[in-house]
Nucleic acid binder design. Structure first.
Lengths: 216, 216
DNA sequence: CGCGGATTTGAACGGAGTCAATCCGCGTGG
DNA sequence: CCACGCGGATTGACTCCGTTCAAATCCGCG
């Protein structure tokens, strides 16, 4: 996901400019011409793929250090929309310049490949979640994955604030918002978490993790 | 998905050796060390990611010209298993050599990036399928996608032989094998297709395509 | 020719969706 | 300052699609 500090310095060398986004503002839309990748420096974004008839599915939640836009390379057009979930700041990484530098700097080339491959692995994880897990397992997996990502970034791994609505979480997990809401309540009753609106505290991460692997 | 003839010639230059696979034989397993990508020259393979407790989910069906193994780059280990669905032949493309050549030959570099990005787009399509579609829509989408891929390769786009069992198809689509079987029967009763075992004929591709987009 | 895996089909169950009512929190304007 | 409005969240009742369990049949292959 994120890159090492060493690599960040390399990245800095090819940064174009920065873009400020207000909450709810789109960085790009599905169908827009692809020219660059974007590194998140402040805030968080969701990506959503069009699902016909104006509907859409949330395909990812991205935070500090994440690099987005990778799916646009093949068609030269973005396949999804990226929207700020809060006021955010992203760096523009012109892709042509990335390719140039990747040719000259092998470690950067490797990082790029790893980045792309990691995204593939991430997507496979989501496919597994959507294809084989029950609703409760999905939400548990989601909460744990968030915890791990916050931890990596130096934040608390047991307490965080959701940036997405119940509906967006549901869309991401292939569930309806009512189901997500009910599961939050159930997890709270079972003493696994404490929820209040978007504030979440994981009271029993171990039990939560077990939930992911079991058939209930 | 596949590459142009021009590119295939480039690829040929970096081919290692060939591997012959018998039906049911694995090209690699999840956890195996990653060293190369593989181009399918004859036959077809499925990829499957482990899903805990010996279970697994089919994550892809790959045929002539497809290149597999992309998810192993980031961790240097394969994240899934690749198994031949029939006697097959694959070319080994040592990844180190690919990276070398990509540095020297920009068009090859671009192809590699496109390849990786295309895989991400494909996965997003599957996520959409698993996250938003009903069972009937999923199978219809699957049948159509197969038709398109066969067409691209010069085969009939309305008549083909499934290489996967009902169970494997179900696993790929997030359904149980009984559901897949029932849907085949229903589609046949509705005059959309003709099925006999693994032989499928699309009688009304247009209606089938409509099925994907509607809420039933 | 017979075995075993794959497929089909039926009946009953249950988990998540749908529809609907209510509540909560927050920004906005009177 | 506070009442109002509105989007988001919660909760309940009921429905329905896909699963589960079970049995029968088909079929490829040794």
């Amino acid at each position: 996901m994120g890159l090492e500090t060493e690599d960040l310095r390399q990245i800095d060398a090819l940064v174009g400019h920065r873009i400020r986004l207000r909450k709810g503002e789109a960085l790009y839309h599905a169908g827009d011409r692809f020219t660059a990748l974007y590194a998140i420096r402040i805030g968080s974004l969701k990506t959503a793929v069009p699902a016909g008839e104006g509907r859409e599915q949330v395909s990812g939640y991205h935070m500090l250090g994440d690099i987005i836009g990778l799916d646009g390379i093949s068609t030269e057009r973005h396949g999804c929309q990226a929207m700020a979930l809060e006021d955010s700041d992203v760096c523009v990484l012109p892709f042509e310049r990335i390719e140039e530098m990747a040719r000259a700097v092998p470690p950067l080339q490797q990082n790029l490949h790893r980045l792309l491959s990691k995204e593939i692995s991430r997507d496979q994880g989501v496919m597994l979640l959507l294809g084989t897990m029950r609703a409760g397992q999905r939400l548990a997996a989601f909460l744990i994955s968030l915890a791990e990502r916050y931890k990596q970034r130096g934040y608390s791994s047991t307490e965080y604030v959701l940036r997405m609505t119940r509906e967006e979480i549901g869309s991401y997990l292939g569930l309806k918002l009512e189901t997500v809401s009910r599961l939050f309540s159930r997890f709270q009753n079972e003493g696994l978490i404490r929820v209040q609106g978007r504030e979440v505290k994981l009271l029993d991460p171990v039990a939560l993790r077990q939930r992911v692997g079991q058939r209930a």
